[in-house]
Design a protein around this nucleic acid. Structure first.
Lengths: 228, 228
DNA sequence: TTATTGTAGATTGGATCCAATATTGATAGG
DNA sequence: CCTATCAATATTGGATCCAATCTACAATAA
């Protein structure tokens, strides 16, 4: 009963009102993992979740399958599923890839950016600067990046970037709960907006690259723990 | 009965001997889609597949879910699943990303390559040159690239690359059935091996980049059809 | 005491049944 | 002849039941 109380968040969530049960469970669990509500290693027991969501185990199983395919959980046959942890090496890789990809995306996006889009990005830029909780921080950060990326029309790149964001967000949140290492990011974001307004694609792309590399470095300083 | 005969390949495949039913069905379907045995738009009917695999619909549904998460099928609620097609724009994007990533991977791999690994790659290089069917071609091509990539120890990058290979292979096969545009590739592969032996990481990386860009170009020449 | 074995409980994997929805074809009206 | 509506069928989504496997703990023997 009190054995595993880490899923108390889902109290009262019911499925019988919108889309398919599977997709609701999937989105809810995914969000809980991304935000860190469900910590690394938390076992996801089908029966338990079925009760929380007031459904049978079928939609739960489908959700867990999909989550595993996205790399967010890891299951062992007849043993069960747990929230997947991520190694330091993988974090590094993901940030390196982010840097590489976001540079390319910016290169294509900047020439297509409308003034409205830049205004929107700047709005998020300010929200970002005044964000208080780590949740607000990551949310506005994602919105800001996304607003700039939209103009690139590189849907596949963006989908890959999204999975990287999904899989690293909880670690970013953890970092930001401790340090307030967002100062440099705020500065870089403002400069980024300026470069976009000037339609300096190469400059914006290069700054984005460095921006992500900086984020990687400050995150790694805060993850000296295990490596799995 | 003769209505949809595009799944006749699975005759006799039975599930009751190895891993979980789900994973067997998943791998089999995935391979069939990758190779092009199941063409774009082919509907995947659960009952029909359940009979072919001698199981219930449950493992079929799980497989389809996982395939959808990998982008290989597309399902509509209460309507069914079909083999996902891919737009020209996505093909372009995937090859651009491949070029970008494989350059980075080579940059890290070359200094770590052992002589044995290079020998292995060269073996595939020769197999590739003498491959007859489009299946042999893509197989050895993948093996060759993979052999070189292993030394990079960039597991996440490789997983992304694998999904790109998975989602584009059938189009490459189709191309190679028509043209024999592999001549240039053979040449580039040999040069690539030379550069690896010389431990010229920058050179190998740059050649790999161009190699993928060339592949992209010759593929696009053969896909002037629809765009969806 | 310690290692081993066996049994009971818990948990996941798969099969079958029912519910919800879409598709198709027939029929009636214009 | 064409169109619209409605019933019949096909197909997917979800619930419940059974099977297979793992885990924990106790009993027994060295």
């Amino acid at each position: 009963m009190a054995k595993s109380d880490s899923l108390h968040h889902f109290q009262g969530i019911d499925v019988s009102q919108a889309g398919s049960a599977s997709s609701i469970v999937f989105e809810t669990l995914k969000q809980a993992i991304i935000t860190g509500e469900l910590k690394d290693g938390t076992p996801l027991k089908q029966e338990e979740l079925a009760k929380k969501f007031s459904t049978s185990r079928i939609p739960i199983r489908e959700s867990i399958n999909r989550l595993e395919q996205e790399g967010l959980v890891k299951t062992i046959r007849y043993k069960g599923a747990v929230v997947a942890s991520i190694s330091l090496k993988e974090v590094e890789e993901m940030f390196d890839l982010r840097a590489l990809m976001e540079r390319e995306v910016m290169l294509k996006a900047v020439p297509n950016l409308t003034d409205d889009q830049i205004d929107e990005a700047e709005k998020y830029c300010h929200e970002f600067a005044s964000a208080q909780t780590s949740g607000d921080w990551t949310d506005t950060n994602r919105k800001l990046h996304h607003a700039l990326f939209q103009a690139s029309d590189m849907t596949f790149h963006l989908s890959v970037l999204n999975t990287i964001y999904d899989r690293t967000e909880r670690y970013l949140r953890a970092q930001l709960s401790f340090s307030n290492g967002a100062d440099r990011a705020v500065e870089e974001h403002h400069t980024l907006i300026e470069l976009c307004r000037a339609r300096d694609a190469a400059g914006a792309a290069e700054l984005m690259f460095q921006h992500v590399k900086h984020a990687k470095r400050s995150l790694l300083e805060f993850l000296p723990q295990d490596s799995e």
